Amino acid sequence: MTITVRRATPRDAAAYARLMSHPSVFGNLMQLPMPNEELWHARLSESTAPGKPDLLLSAELDGEVVGSSGLHPAGPQLRRRHVMFLGISVAPSAQRRGVGSALMAAMCDYADNWAGVLRLELNVYVDNEPAIALYRKFGFEIEGTNRAFAMRDGAYVDSHAMARLHPNPPSLPGQRP
Score class of each variant (00 low, 15 high):
Trp40Gly: 01
Arg43Phe: 06
Leu118Glu: 10
Pro53Met: 07
Val5Cys: 08
Val124Asn: 15
Tyr135His: 04
Gly116Trp: 12
Val157Phe: 06
Tyr156Ser: 05
Arg147Phe: 10
Asp158Asn: 15
Arg176Gly: 14
His160Phe: 15
Gly75Gln: 00
Val117Trp: 11
Pro130Ile: 06
Glu60Trp: 03
Phe26Trp: 15
Ala150Ser: 15
Arg152Leu: 05
Val65Thr: 11
Tyr16Asn: 03
Thr4Asp: 08
Leu32Trp: 03
Leu32Ala: 08
Asn128Met: 08
Glu37Tyr: 00
Thr4Met: 05
Ala111Asp: 04
Val5Asn: 01
Ala42Pro: 02
Asn168Ser: 14
Ser47Asn: 10
Gly63Ile: 04
Ala59Cys: 07
Leu134Asp: 00
Ser69Lys: 05
Leu39Phe: 11
Glu64Gln: 11
Leu61Gln: 13
Phe138Arg: 03
Phe140Pro: 04
Thr48Trp: 07
Asn128Val: 06
Leu44Asp: 11
Met104Leu: 14
Ala111Pro: 02
Arg6Thr: 14
Pro169Tyr: 08
Glu141Trp: 02
Ser21His: 00
Ala15His: 09
Glu38Trp: 04
Pro33Phe: 11
Leu165Lys: 13
Arg97Asn: 05
Gly70Val: 01
Leu19Trp: 01
Leu165Asn: 15
Ala42Leu: 08
His82Lys: 06
Val126Tyr: 03
Asn28Ser: 02
Cys108Val: 15
Asp153Leu: 12
Leu29Cys: 14
Arg79Met: 00
Ala102Tyr: 12
Leu71Gln: 10
Lys52Trp: 00
Ala13Cys: 05
Ala14Lys: 09
Gln95Met: 12
His22Val: 13
Ser159Lys: 10
Pro50Glu: 07
Ala49Arg: 13
Asn123Met: 14
Val83Met: 07
Arg97Gly: 02
Gln31Ser: 12
His72Glu: 10
Leu29Asn: 07
Val83Ile: 14
Glu60Cys: 11
Val5Arg: 02
His72Met: 06
Asp127Glu: 13
Pro53Tyr: 05
Ala155Gly: 01
Pro173Asn: 12
Asp109Met: 04
Asp12Gly: 09
Gly100Lys: 01
Leu78Ile: 07
Gly98Trp: 12
Leu120Ser: 13
Lys137Leu: 05
Ser159Asp: 15
Ala161His: 11
Gly27Ile: 06
Glu143Gly: 14
Gly51Gln: 04
Met30Val: 09
Asn168His: 13
Asp12Arg: 07
Glu60Ala: 11
Gln31Cys: 09
Leu103Pro: 00
Met20Gly: 04
Arg136Ser: 01
Gly67Val: 09
Asp109His: 15
Glu38Thr: 09
Pro170Met: 03
Ala102Ser: 14
Arg6Phe: 07
Gly154Cys: 10
Ser21Thr: 10
Asn128Pro: 14
Leu78Lys: 08
Arg136Tyr: 04
Ser89Arg: 08
Asp112Lys: 06
Leu71Met: 08
Leu55Ser: 02
Val66Trp: 06
Gly116Arg: 15
Leu78Val: 03
Leu103Val: 09
Asn36Glu: 02
Ala106Pro: 00
Tyr125Ala: 05
Ile88Thr: 14
Leu44Tyr: 02
Val124Gly: 13
Pro173Ile: 14
Pro76Tyr: 04
Arg79Ile: 06
Pro177Leu: 13
His22Ser: 06
Ser68Phe: 05
